[in-house]
Amino acid sequence: MFGRLGAPEIILIIVVIVLLFGAKKLPDMARSLGKSARILKSEAKAMKSDGKQQEQAPADPPASEQPRTIQASPGDVTSSRPVTEPTDTTQR
């Protein structure tokens, strides 16, 4: 019953969305959704690469390592900020 959506159903859904949110707000909503998706993708990629680096990392990291910079979205330099990574201060 609800398994297949044809062209008339999709058109009806689009018309209802435009009526509810208005044509002026839809581009802003799509833009913010795209930014959120890019941020989520970059953070997931960073988490995967951090996990691989921890497995392959030497016991003591080099002292001259610069802080990693996290960007809110590609090309958005106004919200970039350096992040200091936590260091392991436990004694062995």
Rank of each mutant, 00 (worst) to 15 (best):
I14K: 12
A59E: 13
P74C: 06
T89G: 13
R92G: 05
A30V: 04
Q91C: 09
A7D: 05
A7V: 09
R38K: 15
G75Q: 06
T69R: 14
P8L: 05
P58D: 10
V16A: 09
G3A: 05
S49M: 13
D28R: 10
E65K: 12
A37W: 10
S64R: 14
F21K: 06
D88Q: 02
G22Y: 00
T78P: 00
R92L: 05
Q71W: 09
A23K: 09
R68A: 07
T78M: 15
S64V: 14
A37I: 09
A57Y: 10
I17N: 08
M47I: 12
K52A: 14
L20S: 14
P61V: 05
A63M: 06
S42I: 09
G51Y: 02
A7Q: 06
V83Y: 12
I39D: 02
I17F: 14
Q66A: 15
F21V: 09
L33D: 00
Q54C: 01
Q71H: 05
R31W: 15
A72R: 11
T90L: 00
I11W: 10
V16D: 00
I13E: 07
I11P: 00
I39Y: 06
T84W: 15
K41L: 11
V15F: 06
Q56W: 09
P61G: 01
G34P: 10
G75M: 08
R31P: 00
F2P: 03
Q91S: 02
G3Y: 03
Q56H: 11
E65Q: 10
P8H: 07
G34N: 05
S73M: 12
T78F: 15
K48T: 08
R81K: 05
K41P: 04
L33V: 08
D28A: 09
P58V: 08
L5E: 00
Q53Y: 13
P27I: 07
E43V: 08
M1N: 06
Q53V: 07
S42L: 02
I11R: 12
A72Y: 10
A57N: 07
Q54L: 10
K25E: 09
L20G: 03
L20T: 15
T90S: 11
D88T: 01
R31G: 03
I17P: 04
L40D: 01
R38I: 10
A37S: 13
A7N: 00
F2H: 06
S42R: 14
I70W: 04
P82K: 02
T69Y: 07
L12C: 02
T84I: 08
I39N: 01
P74A: 03
D76V: 02
T90V: 00
S73P: 02
D28I: 13
K48A: 14
I10E: 10
A59H: 08
P58C: 10
K52F: 03
T84D: 15
A63R: 07
E55A: 15
D76Q: 02
L40N: 15
G6A: 01
A63P: 04
K25F: 03
K48C: 06
A72F: 06
